[in-house]
Each structure stands twice: as structure tokens, then as C-alpha cells.
Write a protein that binds this DNA or RNA. Structure first.
Lengths: 142, 142
DNA sequence: GTCTGTGCAAACGCTTTGCAGACGG
DNA sequence: CCGTCTGCAAAGCGTTTGCACAGAC
């Protein structure tokens, strides 16, 4: 847990209650993708009230420090996840919101060569698929 | 041009000035990606003033009618492009905003099999790459 | 003690909506 | 003429910001 303290200090961030709480929140759910509102609510559940402004500020700082990754799914709101190294892409269930991660070296390589062909130096990329997961398909009418 | 009239009628939309103007605007720039604000400004340049509310409504209707495609690049604002059939993906220049389109059957196929492996029925997908285009690279300092 | 971090509320940018009047079929 | 479409302004939503106070070091 002191790891977290070091991670903050390394990034020139003072070690404060809100920052630790938010960091712990993400580490407790390493696979989850949380919006600012999700963070606010989850902290409330633990009887920790942190102003939304602070949450937005901390999330932005964590993204800049590469502690978190930010995504914009088509929902209109930004979601964050813990940066566990290793790039991956996402499949989002449009019914239940479940997010499945995957990584395809082949796709990555194809992307690189396409970018090269078009003369771009790529700094970032995002591949999102939207669909219905196994579970939700069972509740669909035919 | 009467094609446009038919296209509107086919979708149960009355043929009105604003709708025709907006449709013509996109057809005059078939490769361009325009935000609601872009549409507003471009029409103003032609001395056509259409309220922003109407623009948003028309763009939404056109998207539902499959006349336009909507994208959310990381800029925070939605952009629309003419639906010319044939799926393609995008590379966006983070310096100048230029959008380059590409299509890779191989990537599409890989996506399909990944979705299948994970039990998803895919309804949509988006692949965006962000980088610096050839031209903008020339103005970078080393 | 100094300088950064926080909370609040107000402002923000993009988008949507309610309503009264205009217009297409 | 009826039903849809439009413009305006107000509201909506997620996010950002200004400011005074609190807290880390």
C-alpha cells in the first residue's frame, strides 16, 4: 500500500486523503472502468465524501501521471481504468455496459503499417467494438 | 440533385430548406467530417442562417436515416460525414485535424473473430488512430 | 510558514428540449 | 388545413474554474 504513496510522490503530487482514496478505489477493481460519477458514488458508499471538482482534478492528474488511462466510449462520459502496462482494446456491451478487454498483436501490427503507409507518426489509437455480450443475448427476443 | 429530395422523402422527412441545405453541404464535401458548429458556420458563409437547434435535429435525423455517420473523436464534439456505404476507419492528425480514411479487410476479420471468441454479437465498432500527419511532421522541432 | 490541494458554487461547451409560430403536402 | 418543422431561449449534462480556506511538508 505504501506503493501508492511512492507513486504519488514520484509524480510530484502531495499525498492527500482524496488522492489515496481514489487510487485505492481503482486498485480494488483493477479491471473496471469508472467514470467520475462512479468514483463519487463508490466513495460515498464507503462514507467518504469528496467533491466532484476534486475527483475530476485527481483523475486528470492521474491520467497525466500515467497511473490511469482515460477512454471515451460512445456514452458521452469519460471513463478511467488503472494503467497496468500492456496495451489492450475494448469490447463494450451496449445492453449491460460490461467491458471485455483483448489484445491482438496482429491488429496492432496492421495498424502500424497502415499508419506508415499514410505517413502518420501515431501517438495513440483506440479500437472499440460495441455489441451484445453472451449473457445479454439470452434475454433478447427473436 | 433531385436525388436528395427522394432521399428525404424515403425517410419520412419533409423536404424543407434547412434539410436540403445541410444535405447539399455534405455532398459538396464528401470526405469531410463536420461538427454541428462547422455546419452552422459554413451555411453562414453562404448567407444561409439556420438555428443551431435545427442543425442538431437534422443531423440526428440524418444519422438515424443512415444518410450521415456520426463519430466521436477525442475532441469532445461529435462530427458527421456522408455515408458513402463501405465501412472505413480513421486516422486523425492531432496537429491540424486532418482526417485520413482507410479500410483493412484483415483488421475487420480479426475483429470479427475476436468478438466471436468473446461471445459478443457486434453491432458497431470504431477504430481511431491519432498521430501527426506527414505535413505537420515537417514543422516539428527535433 | 509556504505552497499545494480542496470544496463550493458558478461558469463552461456541447447538445437537447418546450413552446409558439411558420410552412410543406 | 393538419401535422410536421423551425427558431428562440432556457435547460440539460458532464466537466472545468475562481476563490477562500484547509492541509501537507
Amino acid at each position: 500500500m505504501d506503493n501508492n504513496v511512492a507513486q504519488l510522490k514520484d509524480n510530484g503530487l502531495k499525498v492527500t486523503g482524496p488522492r489515496l482514496k481514489i487510487l485505492e478505489l481503482f486498485e480494488a477493481r483493477p479491471e473496471q472502468h469508472l467514470s467520475a460519477e462512479d468514483v463519487y458514488r463508490l466513495l460515498l458508499d464507503e462514507n467518504v465524501e469528496i467533491g466532484v471538482a476534486t475527483i475530476y482534478r485527481v483523475l486528470t492528474q492521474f491520467e497525466q501521471a500515467n497511473i490511469l488511462l482515460r477512454h471515451h466510449f460512445e456514452t458521452g462520459k469519460a471513463v478511467y481504468e488503472l494503467n497496468r502496462g500492456g496495451h489492450h482494446d475494448h469490447i463494450v456491451c451496449i445492453k449491460c455496459g460490461r467491458v471485455t478487454e483483448f489484445c491482438s498483436e496482429q491488429i496492432e501490427d496492421l495498424q502500424k503499417s497502415i499508419a506508415k503507409e499514410n505517413g502518420y507518426r501515431i501517438v495513440d489509437h483506440a479500437l472499440y467494438m460495441y455489441g451484445v455480450c453472451t449473457e445479454c443475448q439470452q434475454f433478447e427476443q427473436h
